[in-house]
Design a protein around this nucleic acid. Structure first.
Lengths: 110, 110
DNA sequence: GTATTTAACTCTGATTTGCAGAGTTTATTG
DNA sequence: CAATAAACTCTGCAAATCAGAGTTAAATAC
């Protein structure tokens, strides 16, 4: 049985990676604002994603203050894709039933 | 902005709750086998879910060894439902686009 | 019917993760 | 050039995660 990617399956990192996937490229400050997180915390999570080669940095200096631009790497994008597949197998996401043998999580509305 | 439920957004607990939702009721040993996890670890996670009233126990003794049967409570089921909604907003799950302004995470296959 | 084994938990302590704020560096403003 | 502020980075503490030792109770052997 496959397990959920622990690197992605964490509140802050899931959002972070989702934002990067949507936006393509974001600065440290962009992420800090969007995630509403402390500097140190964001730094720690980015370091993990960098270490795993899920994201990459492009540092720009010269014009204006130095800034770091973060992007998803192909590795990170593939991991995200796999992660989403895992979630779909596990949970009743989207409209289709995830498994043929079970109609998971129904009868909620009542 | 709403955040992901930290109690549910954790590898073991997400799976645990998904299994409970699918099966309706599982014993400690069932969960241990399915999740392939140590006794202590499973106990700790169950305690958290019990403390949050996401799951409930029914303890049976008398016939055979004493066993604990775990179920999702209505609270837990509602939390799971809300959690899935959050994921759908954040990630491109299912077939439908999550947001009108972005076609998230495309161009993966190439 | 008592001793031994084994399933079903539960508790404890160690490791890892997550977090916030202090510290550092570099540009901009007066 | 001094002061301010943005953009990070580092350090240490608090909480979460985990594995295995310990406990209780039923089943099996004798």
């Amino acid at each position: 049985m496959e397990e959920l990617d622990a690197l992605l399956h964490q509140p802050l990192r899931t959002q972070l990676v989702a934002y990067l996937a949507a936006a393509g490229e974001l600065t440290f400050s962009d992420l800090k604002r969007q995630l509403d997180v402390s500097d140190g915390n964001l730094d720690a999570h980015l370091k993990k994603l960098l270490a795993a080669d899920y994201v990459a940095v492009r540092k720009e200096s010269g014009k204006g203050r130095p800034q770091s631009f973060f992007v998803l790497t192909p590795t990170g994008l593939a991991a995200l894709h796999a992660y989403v597949q895992q979630l779909q197998k596990l949970l009743p996401l989207g409209e289709a039933s995830p498994a043929p043998d079970a109609g998971l999580i129904t009868g909620l509305a009542g």
